[in-house]
């Protein structure tokens, strides 16, 4: 397989993808780095010269910075925990013999197809609206006072919407993995008298490790950039301002490119920290 010729051909064929992605990464990154050291206000004078680390200092010292980092991590963490736990439960359930398994699977996948803007709008208006939302009707039905979801429980609401979108993904990956379990191994364990819980803990869960890693990796990649769900629902208010959203506001709403770019650099650093942890875990798990 590996002759000199095929190796050089391989390099040649890999080149377009590498060059494109390298360009896609480096060009805007360099520009962002340059902007971050400038006072740059397109609507109020444009490029006002170099300012050193001013933007970086200002961005971090802003009262919104640490809460935004926390909000980002909270959303990622909560959604991951919820989707993985519920995903495992659902996967184990869907693996059981039943009628109409295919239809249930279709129902469960459906949220994955819904674009984030649509799901945010639908949840915000038709479910979480304190007067006409379904949830309000439900609360009233049980005699409770309707919750003003997006103001009183804003973070929970966003986590719920995003989890709803990503649960299908987690469930499907985990289901595929559950279905490839070695039945004989499970039966052997049952013969050995292992109770259900220890079979789950010692056989099923380790088998799912690889699938869980994939879910972690892919979902984190997408969750780091959750945007539309916040844009449409709270607009970043009530403690739901993620780092992404904060930068968005600095760049587009206050048109402070320098400050926003410094924030962008912070976001890139945060993403890289998360990435390093993930890649380590994933790299190990994907080797087999």
């Amino acid at each position: 397989m590996a002759t000199q010729h095929s190796r050089s051909v391989a390099r040649f064929m890999l080149a377009p993808a590498v060059i494109l992605l390298l360009g896609w990464m480096l060009v805007p990154l360099t520009a962002t780095l340059i902007f971050s050291f400038k006072k740059y206000l397109p609507l109020r004078g444009g490029d006002l010269g170099w300012v050193g680390f001013d933007n970086y200092v200002r961005f971090v010292s802003s009262s919104a910075f640490w809460p935004s980092v926390m909000a980002t991590l909270t959303i990622i963490g909560s959604v991951l925990v919820i989707t993985i736990i519920l995903g495992i439960v659902l996967a184990l359930l869907l693996d059981q013999p039943m009628w109409g398994q295919g239809i249930v699977r279709i129902l469960v996948i459906a949220p994955f197809f819904v674009m984030p803007t649509v799901s945010a709008l639908v949840w915000k208006n038709m479910f979480m609206d304190p007067i006409n939302g379904i949830l309000a009707h439900l609360w009233k039905f049980f005699g409770a006072a309707p919750v003003e979801w997006l103001t009183q429980a804003s973070m929970q609401s966003i986590v719920m919407i995003v989890s709803w979108q990503w649960l299908p993904f987690a469930t499907l990956i985990l289901l595929t993995s559950v279905q490839s379990l070695d039945r004989e191994q499970l039966e052997a364990a049952e013969m050995d008298g292992a109770p259900w819980i220890s079979r789950f803990w010692h056989l099923i869960l380790p088998h799912l490790a690889r699938a869980i890693t994939i879910v972690l990796l892919i979902q984190t990649i997408f969750l780091l950039s959750v945007f539309a769900e916040i844009f449409v629902t709270t607009g970043g208010a009530f403690g739901t301002k993620t780092l992404t959203y904060l930068i968005f506001q600095r760049v587009l709403e206050s048109q402070n490119i320098g400050l926003g770019s410094a924030g962008g650099v912070y976001a890139i650093i945060l993403a890289n920290i998360v990435a390093i942890f993930l890649m380590r875990a994933v790299g190990k798990n994907l080797d087999s």
């Binding site: 520009a31 902007f35 990649i221 992404t244 968005f248 770019s261 976001a267």
Partner: peptide, 24 residues
């Protein structure tokens, strides 16, 4: 490594590079 690097470009926060792309 190349594969992992490619995947890591997906972690690049879009908002961090929005403005340069916009200008471009």
């Amino acid at each position: 490594d190349i594969l992992m690097w490619m995947l890591s470009t997906k972690m690049l926060p879009a908002v961090g590079v929005l403005y340069p792309i916009y200008i471009g």
